[in-house]
């Protein structure tokens, strides 16, 4: 194995991040040798998710060590630990399969800190004879951790910088775009309903307006809200999304050929409601939202989203009858 990333790896990462090919980005589980690893070289454990593995490989260029890749079905460390696939049992299984006790003379495994919700380090010793130790959260801090043998408080604290949020946006947007085709068909049908039953002209014109408004809602809820997260008012995500969606809708009115105010109300409700929903869904991608908190905000959040959508449909369909 080489520690140099090729262009193909980078293209693969783009595929994985946009969600189109995410499921194909697995690394074969097992033991990998980096550089000139020997009996005393450290052993790092990671998930068989290509992006985790590449991040590790990139940061460890020039080091001599072992990487034990466990089978998390191509899911990253954090989600895999939460789902129970990155566990002490799985690590022990890979240790035995690779006959690690014969390859290295020490008995220590360095685990990614974010696997701690799935791995009980004190159970590892009983299962495979190796002691587990948690390293830093970020792969970039591993070289320093290897040098000093310790993690600082900063290395152990999760961050959610603009850059880390920006990396998540393509996936958020693409997951939504997958449903857009079906939505577009519904938009055209709804938009064509007219006093003389159905008008193709109306369907095309108003359907396009609705589609543009929806793209704006996706931008507001799945891109702008995650990016602006710490600077938006309110703590509940659906409220943050609703605020951004409302602003997006007002901006839309400047560019869209909407004349009737009932249509404007429909678009306003639709964009702010959808944006609120997408923002609420983003809770799953952040490293600071608790499940209890998400469940709590979902009651008012869903009530708002469902009622604004129902009203939006009513007003939109009523448009041509006014």
């Amino acid at each position: 194995m080489t520690a140099t990333l090729t262009l193909r790896d980078d293209l693969g990462s783009i595929g994985a991040r946009t969600g189109f090919t995410r499921n194909n980005y697995k690394i074969t589980p097992g033991l990998y040798c980096l550089g000139d690893a020997g009996k005393n070289s450290p052993v790092l454990v990671t998930a068989n998710y290509k992006l985790s593995f590449d991040a590790l490989r990139k940061e460890l260029m020039g080091q001599n060590l072992w990487i034990l890749v466990v089978d998390t079905r191509g899911i990253n460390v954090w989600c895999a630990a939460g789902k129970g696939t990155f566990s002490a049992e799985e690590i022990a299984y890979q240790v035995q399969r690779a006959q690690l006790d014969q390859i290295v003379s020490h008995r220590e495994l360095l685990l990614p800190q974010l696997s701690a919700n799935g791995v009980a380090a004190h159970e590892l010793k009983k299962l495979c004879g190796f002691r587990g130790r948690f390293g830093p959260i970020l792969a970039a801090d591993i070289p320093e951790f290897l040098r000093t043998g310790e993690t600082s408080e900063t290395m152990r604290t999760v961050t959610f910088s603009l850059r880390e949020r920006a990396v998540l946006v393509p996936l958020e947007v693409c997951m939504t775009l997958k449903h857009l085709f079906v939505a577009a068909v519904v938009f055209f049908v709804l938009s064509g309903i007219s006093p003389d039953f159905f008008s193709l002209g109306l369907a095309l014109n108003r359907g396009t307006v609705l589609l543009l408004a929806t793209l704006m809602a996706i931008f507001a809820g799945a891109a702008a809200t995650p990016l602006l997260l710490p600077w938006l008012p309110f703590r509940q995500f659906w409220l943050k999304g609703a605020v951004v969606g409302a602003i997006a809708a007002l901006l839309l009115f400047a560019g869209l050929p909407l004349t009737s105010s009932i249509e404007k109300i429909a678009i306003f409700l639709w964009v702010s409601g959808s944006s609120a929903f997408l923002a609420m869904n983003f809770t799953g991608s952040t490293p600071f939202t608790s499940l209890s908190g998400v469940a709590k905000e979902m009651r008012p959040g869903l009530a708002f989203q469902i009622s604004s959508t129902v009203l939006a449909i009513l007003f939109w369909v009523a448009g041509p009858f006014m």
Partner: peptide, 12 residues
């Protein structure tokens, strides 16, 4: 809180 899952709305 023992409810697992990744804390996203879709899961709930």
């Amino acid at each position: 809180n023992p409810d697992d899952g990744c804390g996203c709305a879709a899961y709930i």
